[in-house]
Nucleic acid binder design. Sequence first.
DNA 1: CTGAAAGCGCTTACAG
DNA 2: CTGAAAGCGCTTACAG
Lengths: 340, 340
Amino acid sequence: MANIYDVARLANVSTATVSKVLSNTPYVSVQTKERVLEAVRQLDYSPSLAARGLTNRRTYILGLVIPNDPDYLFTDPQLLEVIRGVENTANDNDYNILLSMANKTDHHSAYTRVLRTGYIDGAITVETFEGETPGKLLDDQGLPRVSIGYRNGLNPINSVHSDDYRGAYEAVKHLIELGHRQIGVISGPANFVGAIEERLRGAQTALLEAGLELNPDFLTYGDFTTESGYQASRRLLEVADRPTAIFSMNDRMATGLMRRARELGLKLPDDLSLVGFDDISLATLIDPPLTTIRQPSVEQGRVAATKLFELIKEGKKDFETIILPVELIVRGSTARLNPA
Amino acid sequence: MANIYDVARLANVSTATVSKVLSNTPYVSVQTKERVLEAVRQLDYSPSLAARGLTNRRTYILGLVIPNDPDYLFTDPQLLEVIRGVENTANDNDYNILLSMANKTDHHSAYTRVLRTGYIDGAITVETFEGETPGKLLDDQGLPRVSIGYRNGLNPINSVHSDDYRGAYEAVKHLIELGHRQIGVISGPANFVGAIEERLRGAQTALLEAGLELNPDFLTYGDFTTESGYQASRRLLEVADRPTAIFSMNDRMATGLMRRARELGLKLPDDLSLVGFDDISLATLIDPPLTTIRQPSVEQGRVAATKLFELIKEGKKDFETIILPVELIVRGSTARLNPA
DNA sequence: CTGAAAGCGCTTACAG
DNA sequence: CTGAAAGCGCTTACAG
């Protein structure tokens, strides 16, 4: 393997110059630059991360901390999209990801490594359940950190999340505009930080604007799994004066409910309108295709990682909350209220 | 952050000695060792991977190459288990994983980084479809590599896989012992390297031993997804003289078939016996719980990674194929042939 | 059993 | 615009 000395020798310059060319420093003559680049090409040179890291005091590893167990994580398409976004940006920056599933009971866990001093240059933490975050431990180390989700704890943070409030508002408003008055909601878990509250608030705002309010009997809680959506049917579908439309706080729960509706002989969208949240790829594959709120999941990961690299590379110290826009995607699962 | 000099100073020894203690070299007096360890504790010292890597000419990164797109990967519980196994062992060895999904069209892909000279110390490649492997490119670099799956190409390799032949044999033999004669098979994709062939061979051996043979009409191919199992019903369940028992080459396809069977009004195990393969966690959650062949998925990942570390650390040059045992797990989806 | 010193491959003030 | 040299934090023969 060629090193920087080989390149310098071949290009007839010093290693300092090679280094400058490779890091795109200005003040290098065009001719020299070209000669160096040619040498790099000829030798198929790629700099040693270790040597670079030693000088720069960087590890080129970022921690991605997700406080769910792997079984859950790997069945949550939305979260997996977020990870992909982080991965993309990390790759662009030649960073590696240390994925920590915060499984505190597992001795093999990457969790302890993430927290080890000097092991990572920064971290992205996905905030889900209240209090359960290693965020504080990371902050105490003075490590750059960006949170995907809402602020969870006392520390000020950099965070990225979707416009949950607006999304829920648009979803319910859409149902109201179709003439629905009896609107049910499948919420996510109540101890989920931020997003659930915001979505509930958005839904309520839309109802209020139409002079309606959320019937407590029509509010049910799931845990984001398909199965919990299926279970939600008991309260929402299998009662006398059932809702004619339902807003589900994620798509998976919506598909669970859809399955139950089919079993009960309810036809979508004629007998029941349904709006989801997320716009996972499954949404277009089911019948009818699901009307939903698209949130930019991959983008969330990208934006969070980009922000993290700003903190790492430019040493920024400000705290910023980035809210990404969402969009109502109307498909086949919603329709005008059937007067029948 | 403390470095090795701080530790040496505090323990009143040279950095060479600190290094020796930390790498568990013999020939260090007990007293010195204890003093060093105490200093390490006091300073919360943890060695810089970069510095260590520079000296040892290691990156402490291993490539995990999976030739599926992320959408598929993240819905395959068996493959995810394998990844977890690799992750566990990598963590134990202070290695980081560069997950490459071999998405050649994606510019952000880790694929190119995996192939970059000097970026990784070794790789684990999951062999699935014929010919589609970066294995050769890695081998050409002289990189240590372990394959999970069967040999795919001309190069001799180190590989780890389950005893697919035996697993299929046990599955079908179980059905035969229950009195079944009309046995259907849902195979995985035909261009899948090794495993499918082996499982087919195992199934056929069991049939042959009982004086039976595989009815070509009862052999259908899926792509391992639940949906493809559902589709398989057309050939296997919706025909006049249908099989009374079915061996599905993975659990997900089995659940897809189960769903269709329910829709057709067939009761398991009374009207139909079903054996899967993998023993994913879902297998116990469905009704009836699935009889299946357990393959040690996490273990495959662990064994492959352990082997890889032998190659990396001890410079072994032999080629070994490790076959892991499988086990028939009898649950509620299989029963004695109903004479009715 | 212990330590002095060279070396791993970069980058970065600094001088010119 | 270019280069000599120090330094990042380890490990490893080698000498004692």
